[in-house]
Simulated scan of single mutants.
Amino acid sequence: MATAQELFDDLIMEHLARPEVSMGRMFHSEGLKVNGKIYAFLSKDRRVVLKVPAARAAELVEEGTAEAMVMGARRMREWVALRVPDETVWRRLLSEAATYVGGSSHR
């Protein structure tokens, strides 16, 4: 089984093949940006953190796929941390995050 870093590195390469995707920094980590906005990064504790709609984030937490992101005392409604490296799940959710952040309806 691939480590979180190895799996994320592979998925980064897939995403960087898209012209609208680039690398950027968030919370001292390298992450993926779409049209200049960060949508996913690997945290220092080796969890993939991504931005999805608040309702989707709540759903992922409820089903146990992700944990809510808390910064200080504040829960970040649209950010979740994925628990276990899983290529199928991570690939799907990174694509969801890219679509959400890159979409014209996102604020």
Rank of each mutant, 00 (worst) to 15 (best):
Glu20Gly: 01
Trp79Asp: 09
Ile38Asp: 03
Met69Tyr: 12
Glu63Met: 08
Leu93Lys: 06
Glu6Leu: 08
Pro53Cys: 04
Leu82Pro: 03
Arg74Asn: 12
His28Thr: 12
Phe41Ala: 09
Arg56Thr: 10
Val89Phe: 04
Gly31Leu: 11
Ser22Met: 02
Ser43Thr: 14
His28Leu: 04
Phe27Ile: 02
Ser22Asn: 06
Arg91Ile: 01
Arg74Leu: 03
Val34Thr: 13
Ala17Pro: 02
Met23Ser: 01
Met1Asn: 06
Trp79Lys: 07
Ser104Ala: 14
Met1Cys: 06
Thr88Gln: 13
Asp86Ala: 09
Gly31Ile: 09
Asp10Glu: 15
Ile12Cys: 14
Val101Phe: 07
Glu78Leu: 09
Met26Asn: 08
Lys51Asn: 04
Glu96Ser: 04
Arg107Glu: 08
Ala58Asp: 14
Arg18Leu: 13
Trp79Val: 01
Met76Phe: 09
Ser105Val: 10
Arg107Gly: 08
Ser29Thr: 11
Glu87Ala: 15
Arg91Thr: 11
Ala54Asp: 12
Glu59Ala: 13
Val49Ser: 14
Val48Gln: 12
Met1Thr: 02
Ala81Gly: 13
Trp90His: 02
Ser43Lys: 09
Arg75Tyr: 00
Ala68Trp: 02
Thr99His: 05
Asp45Arg: 06
Ser95Leu: 11
Ala98His: 07
Glu20Pro: 03
Gly31His: 06
Leu60Gln: 10
Ile38Lys: 07
Arg75Asn: 10
Glu62Val: 00
Thr88Trp: 03
Gly36Asn: 07
Ser43Leu: 12
His28Trp: 02
Val70Trp: 12
Met76His: 03
Ala40Gln: 11
Val89His: 05
Ala81Trp: 01
Met26Glu: 06
Ser104Arg: 15
Ala68Ser: 13
Ala97Pro: 02
His106Asn: 12
Glu96Met: 05
